[in-house]
Design a binder for these strands. Structure first.
Length: 642
RNA sequence: GCCGGCGUAGCUCAGGGGUAGAGCAGUGGAUUCGUAAUCCACAGGUCGUGGGUUCGAAACCCACCGCCGGCUCCA
């Protein structure tokens, strides 16, 4: 067979031989990037061990080198095998689950009667490094199904057997290194020594195949790179992530509080955090009113029967707080706002002329979350959705969806999020409503996305039973994605609450409902914002925009005057007139991440000027107050948009 | 909920069967200073909660609560 490797050359290989056989020949060529790690055949990654297609005479391979993203996948997959080998050597009774490469590294799920702890992890890491040092060659073998079953039952690898029995192929591939064997499709490196930099990061419990009914395995997470410096850079990134952790910054910057005595997952917004929230809320309301939404407020609890009608008791009760009984009636803390908005729709007879009816609310809801899943502001039990429900006619659906998408993107960009992952989830197996309308709604969602020129992926069958939806994840400054926005079409609730409007033909028709949240929940969005900006909010969001600092006590009077003038100019300003050195006061302001400091001493006072220090450290001297005000005003993104 | 780790002053953390320690923050004083930490003093803790072991527990054991990293789910 003729093998053409791009930019390397063309080689001849006898049939059913692996690429490995070509190594001596390839090594003779001067390769600027060294020997390839693996190859790409069309869109699949193959390694030096992989069997090549048999029915063709010629294939073209794209070589993958350490700098290619896909090579890392191969490396990490091998690293996970090394991890498994290390564990098996140290703990022979351990049983292996699965061990894939993941975005940031790899893991292996391993059963062992006694769960592993941090100390075991250190031991295992040591062993991993030994195996790497031995530079064991990897081999790929193909076994008959029965042979493979015999092998893994001899090895007492129950989980592997379970996997094996579900495979359809009669031939099973395994990879070996030293005396370690693992059921595996590949691809892998040539030798364990190619894994130059590896680190085990954590152990955690993980159910076999993610199912709570299955036994719990130990998941060992690690990461690996071709170069030590890449590992170092990654560990530094982890440090950076830690520094930006909204829970830490929330404490340091006094933004919010989650307090054991108050309750897990319940958020207290401290004055500074509350101020940021107020800015977001004011802006949100204004923008919605501009776009012909009606602002509404609804109660936090309601009679439980409401949730029976809505169907939430049937499919959502696990997430709902238990009922409260009073005067023989059961009340329910609300997990969603929709039923209330439905009653607003139903408050009077609606005409086709009333549609679309857009109701919006910053509605606080309570959902019970299992204690183990709570996480700072990102996962809480009480939160405020920036919710809206749009009731429209079928012919208005696409237009409304476009308008919603417009608004989403407008908001997200303003908050500094430029990149998104968008998923369109389509009809699941269990669904309500006529399939034709589903098709129409899916089409409407799709063309709305296309109309906005937004790239998206389709998640087939992942829609909620009541309608198709668009989920939007935003990418933060560290490249992490967060789900915030969601747009869902609903055919179910209008049916359950028997919503109608009177059409031109004087007959009743059923409206379609759109649920949508742009920011998702204010709590989560705030958490994401804190991490995105590392606590250094842009000027328009900063709880304190400017701080006035005096050099000595002599300047307090002048400082007070400047402070008052900035305040009446509409800025969020505070002052630091403490009897401390200027360096000390600058340091405090800097650590509080205040965008601007105004520093004044005798010199400024005499000349009636100011010194302005930006958060970046840049200093502008000798400015007049009106120059400063002009400069600050130009910083205000919001006013420049309005 | 489950698995592992953790819980000591407002914060960050040290200590560890003989009765509590640092830095920062706070308070008082000295200092009046030019763009990221001035000095001194003081004050501050039923060592997460409850129970047990012990002459003695913050340390060891058990239960619970909470937090952290995951599994699952989602805003």
């Amino acid at each position: 067979m003729k093998i053409h490797i791009i930019e390397i050359g063309t080689f001849q290989l006898p049939p059913s031989r692996p690429l490995k056989d070509l190594i001596p020949e390839i090594k003779k060529i001067k390769l600027s990037k060294g020997l390839p790690v693996a190859f790409k055949l069309d869109s699949i990654i193959i390694d030096w061990h992989s069997p090549l297609p048999e029915d063709v005479e010629e294939i073209v391979l794209k070589p993958l080198f350490p700098e290619d993203r896909e090579s890392l996948e191969v490396l990490r997959h091998t690293a996970s095998h090394i991890l498994a080998q290390a564990v098996k050597e140290l703990f022979p009774e351990a049983k292996l689950g699965i061990g894939p490469a993941i975005d940031e590294g790899f893991y292996y799920d391993i059963y062992y009667p006694k769960p592993f702890n941090e100390e075991d992890l250190k031991l295992i890491e040591k062993k991993v490094k030994e195996i790497i040092k031995k530079n064991l060659p990897l081999e790929r073998k193909v076994l008959e199904r029965s042979e493979a079953e015999r092998l893994f039952s001899e090895l007492k690898e129950d989980f592997k057997l379970e996997l094996l029995r579900e495979f359809e192929d009669s031939q099973i591939s395994v990879y070996t290194q030293g005396n370690f064997v693992d059921l595996c499709r590949g691809p892998h490196l040539l030798t364990t020594g190619q894994v130059r930099a590896v680190k085990l990061l954590s152990v955690a419990g993980a159910y076999w195949r993610g199912n709570e009914k299955n036994p719990m395995l130990n998941r060992i997470y690690g990461t690996a790179f071709f170069k030590e410096e890449d590992l170092k850079a990654y560990l530094e990134l982890l440090e950076e992530v830690k520094k930006r952790d909204h829970r830490r910054l929330g404490k340091e910057l006094e933004l919010f509080l989650i307090e054991e005595d108050i309750g897990a997952g319940l958020v207290i917004w401290l004055p500074k955090g509350a101020l940021v929230r107020k800015i977001i809320e004011d802006f949100w309301k204004e923008e919605h009113l501009k776009r012909d939404y009606h602002l509404v407020y609804t109660p936090h609890i309601a009679l439980r029967d409401l949730w029976k009608t809505s169907g939430h008791l049937d499919f959502y009760s696990d997430n709902m707080y238990p009922p409260m009984e009073l005067e023989n009636r059961a009340y329910q803390l609300k997990p969603m706002n929709c039923p209330f908005h439905i009653y607003i729709y139903n408050q009077k007879r609606r005409s086709y002329r009333d549609l679309p009816l857009r109701l919006c609310e910053l509605g606080t809801v309570y959902r019970f979350e299992r204690s183990g899943v709570l996480h700072g502001l990102l996962r809480v039990r009480g939160f405020t959705q920036d919710d809206a429900h749009i009731f429209c006619r079928e012919d208005q659906l696409e237009d409304e969806l476009i308008r919603v998408l417009d608004l989403v993107i407008y908001f997200l960009k303003l908050f500094g999020f430029q990149e998104y992952q968008i998923y369109l989830s389509t009809r699941p197996e269990k669904f309500v409503g006529p399939p034709e309308i589903w098709d129409k709604a899916e089409k409407a969602l799709k063309s709305a996305l296309e109309h906005k020129g937004l790239a998206f992926e389709i998640d087939p069958g992942e829609g909620v039973f009541y309608g198709p939806k668009i989920d939007l994840k935003i990418k933060d400054v560290l490249g992490r994605f967060w789900q915030c926005s969601t747009i869902q079409v609903d055919f179910n609730l209008p049916e359950r609450f028997d919503l109608v409007y009177v059409s031109e033909d004087n007959r009743f028709h059923r409206p379609i409902m759109i649920h949508r949240a742009l920011l998702g929940s204010l709590e989560r969005f705030f958490g994401v914002l804190i991490e995105h900006y590392g606590g250094a909010f842009p000027f328009w969001l900063a709880p304190i925009q400017v701080r006035v600092l005096t050099i000595t006590d002599r300047n307090i009077l002048y400082g007070e005057k400047i402070f008052q003038e900035l305040k009446s100019a509409g800025f969020r300003v505070d002052k630091d007139f403490r009897n401390e050195k200027i360096n000390y006061k600058i340091r405090s302001a800097q650590m509080e991440k205040i965008p601007y400091m105004i520093i004044l001493g005798d010199q400024e006072e005499q000349r009636q000027t100011l010194s302005l220090r930006k958060r970046s450290g840049e200093v502008l001297q000798d400015l007049t107050l009106s120059e400063v005000i002009t400069l600050l005003r130009s910083e205000n993104t919001l006013s420049s948009i309005h």
